[in-house]
Simulated assay, not measured.
Amino acid sequence: MKHPGMVRVVIVAWMLVASGLLAGRPAHAELLLSQSFDSAALGEPMRFSIYLPPGYGAPDEAERRYPVVYLLHGVGDDERGWPNYGKVDETLDRLIVAGDLPPFIVVMPNGLKSWWVDSSDIGGPGNFGTAVRDDLPKHVETHWRAMTSRDGRFVAGLSMGGFGALRLAFANPERYRAVGAMSSALWNRVVPGWRPSDPARMTRIFSGSFGEPFDPERFIANHPRRYLPNVENPPAPIGIYLEAGDDDGFGAQFATLELFEELRDRHIPVELRIDDGGHQWNVWRKALGPMMQWFAGLMKPAGG
């Protein structure tokens, strides 16, 4: 008969192995909320949250570099939106531990209501487009083991973040391997000379990112569609992943379909997913895993 103390040691050891601790691999990711760095583009600190995948701290992977997804939030959220409501760590932990997804770093910046464009020249929220394109990757790639090549850099977002992700990727295809856009707030009804019926609502939504009052010409000049010629003949293949819920009350599914059709008409490769649901977190939480797996499928076998 085994001594009770020995049985306890065996059980504890088994639990440690199961959790990965004896192997030097944490079973769960590390999620660092509300970090900050000094952004030259903003002229002030930029906040962000960062997800480090299982195994990131393992001694045997000290030289490994990981692909990075810059994941952008929508209007009304901040750097804690995706962690708190999108459950990024839970989704990626599950997929990575199961072997269904290679480890990724995910960076989730706070973009206020900037629409992820530059607006300091008109008194808007600030130059968030440049901050996310230049300053944030430089900081992340310096302080964490993030891949520094285009093949390991992705951008994605929801609603306002979908608009921003598409704009960043289409304007700078040399910087990103792929873009993912969920329920993108594309506002296709905005045309030259368009005027809103409720200016106060526009102020709440856009916060001066395109001028105050809202300037449709500036919005159109910053729209992802303006940069489509860049992805007709990009310097290297760029993946485009579009997703929306079929019951989106803001009509994002229709705007997404319009963009999908325009990309196809231009012979630009694109993936489309229309899921069940509205403009809400339960749709985006479910869409996150398939999008990440699609990103992983684009990467070179050796990880770039």
Rank of each mutant, 00 (worst) to 15 (best):
L33G: 05
A27V: 09
F37C: 02
A221E: 06
I274A: 10
G99V: 12
P290H: 05
M160T: 00
G124Y: 12
L101D: 04
D198H: 15
I205L: 15
V190E: 09
L242C: 07
R204F: 15
E63H: 11
F214V: 02
L101S: 05
Y56C: 04
V231K: 06
A58R: 06
D151I: 03
M291P: 09
A13G: 09
I205D: 15
E141F: 06
A178E: 02
Y241I: 07
P192T: 06
A200E: 15
P109K: 10
I50S: 11
V107A: 15
E63S: 15
R25E: 13
G55A: 11
G297R: 07
V75G: 05
F154W: 02
K113H: 15
M160L: 02
P59R: 11
G57S: 14
A171N: 00
F104R: 04
L242M: 10
P45N: 04
M46C: 08
I122S: 10
P196F: 11
W116Y: 15
D275E: 13
A23C: 10
V10R: 11
P234F: 09
D78M: 12
P235Y: 07
H223A: 11
W284M: 01
L71K: 01
G111H: 12
L272I: 03
V97D: 01
M46F: 11
H3R: 13
R150W: 02
A58T: 04
S36M: 06
W281R: 00
D246R: 10
S34K: 11
W194R: 09
R25V: 15
R273G: 05
D151A: 15
F128I: 02
D89T: 04
L298P: 00
G126N: 12
R264D: 03
D246H: 06
S149Y: 00
F128G: 06
D121M: 12
V140G: 07
L31I: 01
L263F: 02
G251L: 02
A221H: 02
A287Q: 01
A58E: 07
V12R: 03
F214H: 05
G55K: 09
L168E: 07
